[in-house]
Design a protein around this nucleic acid. Structure first.
Lengths: 342, 342
DNA sequence: GTGAAAGCGCTAACAA
DNA sequence: TTGTTAGCGCTTTCAC
């Protein structure tokens, strides 16, 4: 910067003014400075700026794994939402490692002003960790509720109920659910429990008796486990005409296992998933699902974080919980077929 | 930091020593400082560190879109490779926007020491842009060759040839290719051209005459376009017993269109893709593909970048081109089926 | 409209 | 083993 000032024959302050688009700089001076900048290939040192401003303009996003479609699509949306506010995003992978989740949460990601945190292992019982965090955090997901931070989540049970109600509306009565986690611990709330709850509510509302043989455990939620659970279900010989997979990855496995067993989808068995990942649009048949409103989640979370990072906010607001709007997306696997195949 | 020093009754330097795990600190002093740190919730200011060190410890990764499986999986691998070297990663999405690619390349991502750059629009003709870049850049992908920076790429034509040779080895003779880009411009080298070249080489080597009706254009490489191209191919009525999709996204669409047309895979038509994205493991039938060695790509690229960022490297090395090892992954869609389905 | 100087938080060099 | 000082590159304040 000093060199630029020297070359342009001005002070560093004027260079700074030009770089920051300060209004009151004579056009001629501005041009001379810009020329010098180009000449020397000067790039402002962002660390120095960050030091001066007290903020880096970078936020962190911590997710389990980027190769899981859901999180890749979430990260995509978060990056775009952050960009719209002039922020960059550092992405950290937690990798299903509890210790790592604790470390990232308590220390934050380097060089960031705040963190969007989507844990996979931490639960309600770790809520106290959030109390101690010294920088702005917005929580994503369903693992922890009632913490001291802002939180963006989805209508798990309501959306699950809507999914099953859709199956019921298609005339299905023997509706299996794949992906339950039977080893519930007291105080733990997991997406699987909430979605199962919605499933049961929908059955009850339709006057369909619950049949525990139709509730199949599968964890973690990967296609392999969805396929295995479906094979188990088929092996029991119990009758069913629909499957609600608790997420789309499971649903991919369900479709696969049904295909292997020559059950036609949706004729013999209707299938609906949860998350509406891109992959579901490309299967044969295409997969019905619940769209959790990823753009809304990303936008809201970034907005909340920005607000918490902003020191100008006079009063510290109490923590907010935002649940994004969801949507039932009907595709071929549940008898829709109106939507363009891909 | 001053406050911590005050509370612990030491100088800021000692606090610094403790924070940086400097060896020669008396255990008792260290404990006192650590206590003060915990007490005050002190977190080192990374901007100040970055300013002092002349580096931020953050690198940038610029890719077209994170929701495209290939790039999500690449980003996953890059983040892990960077983490292994103590670096964080800021991810920028280029979104198929040429101007944005130019901006990101020339300005870099904020707060980063270097950039891994995987453009989608810039081509050979933009090589000169790379000349002007004032910070370490490693190029990823197949769009630009012969530039002044290090470059990590894959054996496009060789791998494509191996894919088609695999189909030939399965006894296929009427092998279609989906995903060509017919509007070649002079001097442009695109992955599609390189892979098509490999396809033709394999046919020639097997003594199979080339049939232009079997070369189907599709762009961009999305499932929808793969499906459309396959439907077109089917509509022409020309005979074929295998399809080489130039990437896996196209292949998903190919599988879909074949399924709709009741062509059995692999019995009637064998299919192989390129990229080996996770999604290919979960289709019915599972998808054969070319594994481009993502871990190797990520590791090599990060290593090269780190080396260029390191001022201790005495001589500036000439630009290097590393082509990662690939692997033909045989799954059900090309008559394999030995690999575990999911 | 432009310049001079102070200081953001940290660590390397040196001193004690 | 610990303390003091200078300065990394920038922007803010206050002169001019």
């Amino acid at each position: 910067m000093r060199e630029v000032a020297l070359l342009a024959g001005v002070s560093v302050k004027t260079v700074s003014n030009v770089v920051n688009n300060y209004q009151h700089v004579r056009p001629e001076t501005r041009a001379r400075v810009q020329h010098a900048i180009a000449e020397l290939g000067y790039r402002p040192n962002q660390s120095a700026r960050g030091l001066r401003y007290g903020r880096t303009g970078v936020i962190g996003l911590a997710v389990p794994e980027l190769r899981l479609n859901y999180f890749a699509e979430l990260a995509d949306a978060v990056i775009d939402a952050a960009e719209a506010r002039g922020l960059n995003v550092i992405i950290g992978q937690l990798g299903g490692d509890r210790d790592r989740e604790v470390t990232v949460l308590t220390e934050g990601l380097r060089q960031t002003d705040g963190l969007l945190f989507s844990p996979e292992r931490l639960g309600i019982e770790d809520r106290h960790l959030l109390e101690k965090v010294r920088y702005p955090v917005v929580l994503l997901g369903e693992r922890i509720f009632g913490g001291p931070t802002d939180h963006v989540s989805i209508h798990n049970s309501t959306a699950a109920r809507a999914a099953v109600e859709h199956l019921v509306a298609q005339g299905r009565r023997r509706i299996a659910v794949v992906g339950t986690h039977p080893d519930a611990r007291e105080g733990q709330v997991r997406p699987s429990d909430l979605r199962l709850e919605g499933y049961r509510e929908a059955l009850a509302a339709a006057g369909i008796p619950r049949d525990r043989r139709l509730e199949r455990p599968a964890a973690p939620w990967h296609p392999q486990n969805g396929a295995d659970a479906t094979r188990d279900l088929l092996a029991t010989g119990v009758d069913f005409d629909a499957v609600f997979a608790l997420n789309d990855m499971l649903a991919l496995g369900v479709l696969r296992a049904l295909g292997e067993a020559h059950r036609r989808v949706p004729d013999d068995v209707a299938v609906i998933g949860f998350d509406n990942v891109d992959a579901g649009r490309f299967t044969v048949p295409s997969l019905s699902s619940i769209d959790p409103g990823r753009e809304e989640i990303a936008r809201t979370a970034v907005d909340m974080l920005v607000e918490r990072m902003d020191r100008h906010v006079p009063v510290q607001r109490p923590p907010r919980l935002h649940k994004a709007r969801f949507r039932v997306v009907v595709r071929e696997s549940s008898g829709g077929g109106t939507e363009q195949p891909a």
